[in-house]
Design a binder for these strands. Structure first.
Lengths: 207, 207
DNA sequence: CACACTAATGGCACTGAGGGTCAAAAAGAA
DNA sequence: TTCTTTTTGACCCTCAGTGCCATTAGTGTG
């Protein structure tokens, strides 16, 4: 049963991230995030509190799971984009691909994102996670435009792309029947119209 | 000397927000934000720690000062915008006005924004402040478009406008010689070009 | 002047997050 | 068995934030 990737040397881990997250999410949904203490999570996962804090640098990082590792996918996806499409198109496609989840995993993803987007402590902490995500976008855009990554435009595109993605996620959470892809598309096209000035002289509708 | 707005009743306050912020910023710049404890700030301000936490709900709120109150200005500024200009133009003008600071106050503003934008704990906490700021934009846009405030487009505009403002601030902080107005203008126009697809086939520049 | 009344203060105790240190536990290797 | 390696978890500490409550410093009244 334990043939694959044979154990290297010392004492084997008592648990893994998946098990901890299962225990943690059960408690979060039961009592809420803030009301769940690290002690409670550790006990539910059958480990010590100190060990729990070795698996995750902070309580706030638990709902994010292995997010940091997944950023490599986003980077790779961007790198694989053809060079003959507009930058915004490449970015949009990569964001769509990055946020695709299998049908079966949708309920878990909804639960996770609900927690992340509706819990104040996590809304705050997430800013630190988003920063890394934005950097991936920013670096790609800077590369495509031949600008340094700390130039205004690439950074603005990184910030704005994140803003769009979060808007789409909020919409997705509020409407059970929608897909993330739909929401992302709508957010992008709506914003393009907004910036083109094609939206916002509604002298006709209402009053 | 104490004629204006005579004291109402009970024990007079031992300090005020301005005095606390002065003491706090001195310590923040001296030792850094994280390394400054609430006890140290309270002592420097000549008050008890418990009292300090009545003036500010948390340590993270100190650098933000009276931000919440200033949101009323943003709201008013938007409400006063003419209805015959595109929504994005109205929003842009209001954001410019909101972020205008007097020449004399620029150094303090730089110091405050540096702290807010470059301190991880504050980057995180600021997300909660930004939320209220975004809501003001979102509600205005929703009103102009005849949509509910929780519709996708108004929310996206709120998120994106914040993203632009933050990008401009980062640029402003990195370049002593620039004004916030310039940076905001450049961010907005750059993004309009980006979304128009007018940017990003730089087959001519370099290689 | 003494006595209420009122609002701000600040001390005390408590919880919970997070980190540093280190001895014990549990595996493989010699 | 013994050595080596890695994880574990106990113990102790600091600091943010909260509830509670007696104290203090003013104002207003008899």
């Amino acid at each position: 049963m334990r043939s694959a990737t044979r154990r290297p040397k010392g004492r084997p881990p008592a648990t893994d991230h998946a098990a901890i997250e299962r225990a943690a999410f059960a408690l979060f949904t039961e009592r809420g995030f803030e009301a769940t203490t690290l002690d409670a999570i550790a006990e539910a996962a059958g480990i010590g509190r100190r060990t729990l804090l070795r698996y995750y640098p902070s309580k706030n990082d638990i709902p994010w799971g292995q997010f940091d590792e997944s950023l490599a996918d986003l980077r790779a996806s961007l790198a694989a984009m053809p060079h003959d499409i507009p930058v915004y198109e490449a970015v949009h496609r990569a964001v769509l691909a990055f946020n695709h989840v299998d049908e079966a995993a949708v309920p878990q993803h909804r639960q996770r994102m609900t927690l992340l987007l509706r819990t104040p402590a996590l809304q705050a902490h997430s800013a630190l996670k988003y920063r890394q995500w934005r950097e991936v976008i920013t670096c790609y855009v800077a590369g495509r435009l031949g600008l340094p990554p700390d130039a205004l435009l690439p950074r603005a595109v990184g910030n704005v792309t994140l803003a769009l993605a979060l808007s789409a996620y909020e919409e997705w959470l509020a409407h059970e029947d929608r897909t993330i892809e739909e929401c992302l598309d709508e957010a992008l096209s709506g914003l393009r119209a907004y910036f083109a000035g094609a939206v916002g002289r509604p002298r006709h509708a209402r009053a």
